[in-house]
């Protein structure tokens, strides 16, 4: 099902339904979605910047890597950009495989890689102004297990 980079919201239910319908031969579907935290009510909004052109290429390369490493029948990545409010969905991944282990592992791999290898940057706006979210060492370390 490929990768999609968009500012518009997506309907997780409809996406999963379409993904499942198209996943011929699969016995397991794993889905994950990332949501903007409200940080105890201190976050007003989050702005996601990206690198048009490179973003799509990087996500597709990560997706292809997952398809090569695990026995997947399909994988989908949707990632949004632009201004988002607390509670809004930022992104989702879906993986399909014959048995669940491959789908679970591939979904975690996709998440780990798109956190620090896809060109997105988050800026949080709150009462105290705006600040760029710093990358965490733990996110970089997470790549070492694959």
């Amino acid at each position: 099902m490929g990768v999609r980079v968009q500012s518009a919201p997506f309907d997780m239910g409809a996406e999963v339904q379409a993904f499942t319908k198209a996943a011929t031969g699969a016995g397991a579907i794993v889905t994950f979605s990332g949501v903007v935290r409200d940080e105890g009510g201190t976050l007003a909004s989050m702005e996601i910047e990206h690198y048009p052109g490179m973003t799509e290429k990087a996500l597709e390369a990560i997706r292809q890597d997952a398809m090569a490493r695990w026995s997947l029948t399909d994988a989908l990545v949707i990632h949004r950009f632009g201004p988002l409010k607390p509670g809004e969905q930022i992104m989702m991944v879906a993986t399909a495989s014959r048995h669940r282990a491959d789908a679970f592992q591939a979904a975690e791999f996709l998440m780990d890689y798109l956190k620090s290898r896809a060109p997105f940057w988050k800026k949080e706006r709150g009462a105290d102004g705006a600040s760029w979210v710093a990358a965490k060492d733990a996110d970089e370390d997470a790549l070492k297990r694959w």
Binding site: Y51, I90, R117, P119, F120, W121, K122, D139, E140
Partner: peptide
């Protein structure tokens, strides 16, 4: 050539 800080996707 593009320059940017460490990425924070997901």
């Amino acid at each position: 050539v593009a320059f940017f800080p460490p990425m924070t996707g997901g």
